[in-house]
Design a binder for these strands. Structure first.
Lengths: 313, 313
DNA sequence: CTTTGGGTATTCCATGCACGCATGCCTTCC
DNA sequence: GGAAGGCATGCGTGCATGGAATACCCAAAG
């Protein structure tokens, strides 16, 4: 096969039409070029340059080779640029994972900011539960993920580092005509006899159970719905009430009423998860996510424990 | 930049997911692969493979590189195949030049045969005067040319070799209603008072002048027309008579009558011109041209001086 | 015919890169 | 705890590659 040095040599000789000139351009001596070309021609199976009294000229075989040569060299140049871009975080592909609620507002906001700052980065987004996202991150299928610590406390492998983004509380979601919809704040105990809609996936019921336990009752769960849109649809239809994380309130359907919880509301923390040696682009996105998190309504920065109010002032 | 060996190594490791396996495939030792990969990663500016307990895995940067790697290697493979094809004469591009009359029948016939025998060769055709074709051939712009020795005796540079294809004679072209059109053979002296149409390009009048000089008169030239179609159009319209090479009789317009010349007809030899080191494909085409020349009506093989008869029996 | 100049081919030699071998170290699995 | 699989590393060597000098070739000029 042909060496890249050989390709560069072929290109230079073809462009300049002379061994001597090519040698000057590539910082070789003429003799080196001569011998190298001879070696390349031997490997190519025939002469690539026609020797003229003054300089050389491509043979048809040489011209064929030269055409490909230019493309290949150009391609290698592009590879170098892309690698440099990847290492600077200003290019390449970035695969992002996020749980469903984060995709309502936080992640879109952040990705919009990010795309403005790094237009060269090609981002793709996958949605999944925290558990799943951590696994994908660990196996390198995604580069950065937005995850939450609830439920199950987020046992991440040591190869993954977490950066807290925000702390959010859960609100109750009521149908528009619900008897408590007029109140500014809802006491969970007033909902002890209502039907509750909860998620169908494993662990998603822990949050509700814990909150109601704090309030001193056990919720009557009438339905388990996997998807968010379906869950909210059932609530809007008056079939029950549910817990809604504050992050999901953006763009909430108008026939639903969200009210903060009177007693200690269930809370969870949202993290950016990165591999221990993340892509620069991933690290940048984590930074942008933190900025976007600060602008999310109804959420607080992670460390302080200030109370969330809904709707925000 | 990246060496082709490096590219092959990257590809093997990425495909097999292991230094050891890649080493086995490429007939290296594991240690060589390890150090080579380390060197490549240093040049790439960052790790390309993530080391796992069992084997390795591409990092995003590595994946980017690998994508290009495969394309480049594939391309180099294609180059090799093309070069092999060129040297066997079974592929590549063949640039053919021919003078106008040869393009009437000889060259199309030969190219048709040639394409059937070597379907892999991509042929292009340029038309031009012999002088021009020889220059183009000398500078490598075309690979083979069909030229004639008339006029000017064909002084070719030593870098070009000529292979005689055929010897053709010139006929007189008369309008359909001409007073001599009924004769089987025309005596040039009967045309001493006719208007002659001749070519406009330099040297094209020599043939007519010589022929008429042999017959003992000087032709009255009424018009000079550059293009063949125009020339024949004028003759067909009854504006004059002209000389027509035998090769051009194929596909001649029906309102023209061609008649052999009674006295010694002007003749010319047609050659295939090749560079001293021709493409195998060019050499093959020369062979096919010789075959086609043997089947051309009104022409003779070069060495014997047999008289041409028109129309042929 | 000789000279000169621009270009390529060839010979000799030094250098350094890359590979193989042997070994070390880590992790996982039995 | 031992065995096995896999990557990293230190050392020695051989071959490829480039530099310097020179021979060679051709064309144009004197």
């Amino acid at each position: 096969m042909f060496d890249t040095d050989a390709l560069r040599l072929i290109d230079a000789v073809a462009r300049l039409g002379s061994f001597t000139a090519a040698a000057a351009e590539l910082q070789y001596t003429q003799s080196a070029v001569s011998r190298r070309v001879a070696a390349i021609e031997a490997r190519a199976g025939g002469p690539l340059f026609e020797r003229l009294p003054r300089g050389v000229r491509l043979t048809p075989a040489g011209a064929t080779l030269h055409r490909h040569t230019r493309d290949v060299l150009e391609r290698l140049q592009r590879v170098n640029e892309e690698l440099a871009a990847i290492h600077q975080g200003t290019g390449g592909r970035l695969r992002v994972g996020a749980f469903a609620t984060a995709n309502a507002a936080l992640v879109p906001t952040a990705l919009k900011d990010y795309a403005r700052e790094f237009p060269g980065v090609d981002t793709t987004l996958v949605e999944g539960l925290t558990r799943h996202l951590v696994d994908r991150l660990d196996e390198g299928a995604i580069d950065v993920a937005v995850v939450s610590d609830y439920p199950a406390g987020l046992d991440t492998p040591p190869s993954i580092v977490l950066e807290p983004l925000l702390e959010e509380e859960f609100l109750v979601g009521l149908p528009a005509g619900h008897r408590l919809a007029a109140q500014e704040v809802v006491d969970l105990r007033d909902l002890r006899d209502d039907n509750w809609i909860e998620g169908a996936r494993p662990g998603q019921n822990l949050m509700l159970a814990a909150a109601c336990a704090t309030a001193g009752f056990t919720p009557r769960v009438s339905m388990r719905v996997g998807e968010w849109t379906g869950k909210l649809g059932f609530v809007a239809a008056g079939l029950g009430v549910t817990l809604v994380p504050a992050l999901a309130t953006q763009g909430m359907r108008p026939d639903l009423v969200l009210r903060p919880i009177a007693q200690q509301a269930p809370r969870r923390t949202v993290f950016a998860a990165l591999p221990r040696a993340p892509l620069p682009a991933a690290r940048e996105l984590a930074r942008v996510l933190a900025g976007a998190a600060g602008r999310m309504a109804g959420c607080t920065t992670p460390s302080p424990t200030s109370r969330a109010v809904w709707p925000p002032a």
